[in-house]
């Protein structure tokens, strides 16, 4: 299972590295969203800094949609999906592989965005031992839910509009948890760091639940009828 996962993840990440879409399009898009938020919120530093955790994670959510769509666009073109099914790879392995690919992209993007908010919103990145695990847990949770729904809507018509409708309500707890953990870490709100750790625990639970659900359910998503 894990060998299969490594194969699929390696394939996806190689595609990403070679096509450089992530670097050339998704990352600039995310930075652009940060700039647009600054325009919308009037770059009065107070408002922007208080809203930083929320804006950060909204940006990540939007980027997740792009990452999931890209990851499964590669799978639905040219009958790749059938070949993947015929390849004899373990479905759970395929799921984990796609998940690792998406989560790795998201993690890279989150690190980039951390730099972005530090510079553009003058956020003080304190409590890195809370910030970084939060980024990781959220990336895994988003990746797991995204992989499940990405496989569901891949190949159906109207998938560009259906994916946000399906995915965003599901990951609402991630938005709540990650934003609160960031507020606790960055200060400003009335949350203590200890409360931030509890939110991190929620994120980990979410990630585990959806990784588990994906491992169990992915087989029936791949097989035909």
């Amino acid at each position: 299972m894990f060998r299969d996962a490594a194969l699929v993840a390696g394939k996806d990440l190689r595609i990403e590295l070679r096509s450089r879409v992530g670097l050339n399009q998704v990352a600039p898009f995310a930075l652009l969203v940060l700039v647009l938020f600054a325009f919308a919120l009037d770059p009065d530093r107070g408002v922007l800094r208080r809203a930083t955790p929320g804006l950060f994670w909204i940006t990540v959510m939007l980027a997740t949609l792009l990452a999931v769509q890209r990851s499964f666009a590669a799978e639905s073109a040219d009958g790749t999906r059938d070949q993947l099914r015929l390849s004899g790879l373990d479905p759970a392995g395929i799921f984990l592989g796609k998940l690792v690919g998406i989560a790795a992209e998201l993690l890279a993007l989150e690190v980039l965005l951390l730099g972005g908010v530090a510079i553009l919103y003058s956020a003080h990145l304190r409590e890195l031992q809370l910030l970084l695990p939060t980024c990781l847990a959220a990336a895994v949770g988003l990746g797991a839910a995204g992989t499940l729904y990405g496989a569901l809507v891949a190949g159906v018509r109207g998938r560009e509009t259906l994916l946000p409708l399906l995915l965003l309500p599901i990951v609402a707890p991630v938005l709540i948890g990650a934003t609160s953990a960031f507020e606790a870490a960055l200060g400003g709100a009335d949350l203590t760091v200890a409360q931030g750790w509890r939110w991190l625990a929620l994120l980990i639970v979410f990630a585990l639940v959806y990784v588990g659900a994906g491992i169990l359910a992915f087989g029936s998503l791949l097989e035909e009828s």
Binding site: L152, P173, V209, L221
Partner: peptide, 22 residues
């Protein structure tokens, strides 16, 4: 039928987490 069933379960699994977090 199968895909909808998976989607239904995935949505249902979310309910307790959503409730707890909110």
């Amino acid at each position: 039928a199968k895909w909808s069933a998976v989607a239904g379960i995935v949505a249902a699994v979310d309910i307790p987490i959503v409730h707890y977090s909110t």
